[in-house]
Amino acid sequence: MSWLIKSSIGRKFIMSISGLFMILFLLFHMSMNLALVFSLEAYDKICELLGANWYAIIGTLVLAAGFAVHIIYAIMLTLQNRKARGKERYESSSKTPTQWSSKNMFILGLSILLFLILHLYQLWYNMQFKELIGDPTAVSKGSELVVGLFQNSWVVLVYLAAFVLLWFHLTHGFWSALHTIGWSNKVWLKRIKVIGNIFATLILIGFSIIPIYLHFAY
């Protein structure tokens, strides 16, 4: 199976699979969090369910591994591609009318990663992590922490900005992942692009509702 590292298509395959895995996670994450809009108690129930249980820990570890693979491969591919481009660059910037996000996946990913670190620190660290290490300051009621966090307008704005970046990342990432694993042809290429855009927009709206609602409702 060394071809998964050695061949370009193998590397892209890993990138796609890890990406698709995270797309599934996003869907899951969004559905869980949307509970906040309907009932804070429901949300806290879910948090309890996904606390320091063995299945939640395994899930978290798998997820972390998926992220790590996606990020490591992204760095690897980007470095290789820079090298393949050659030392000398074009002086006139490219006028080829490509999709903006397709050319900036790495930067988009990097920005999302920075947001992720912030996000993990603000929420996950105080919830699951502290619980895991047995820190008594671990927050037991997730909803309080979240609602409190989103009273700050700046935090809301940062989160919204991150969702927009994620939208860009997904509009390319979704169809590109399917294309790379070979799920595309003359007919389906257009379709997976449309499905990808719809999906990215759903994710954007679904996630955005939460901070906005929490900010204004409490």
Partner: peptide, 29 residues
Amino acid sequence: GFGNCTNTGACEIECPKNISITNIARLNR
């Protein structure tokens, strides 16, 4: 030493013979 495809589609746009990137999906497959 050629790079890894990231599906930007620039190749298809600039190809003078209109070769479609769906061929890339077929190659991947």
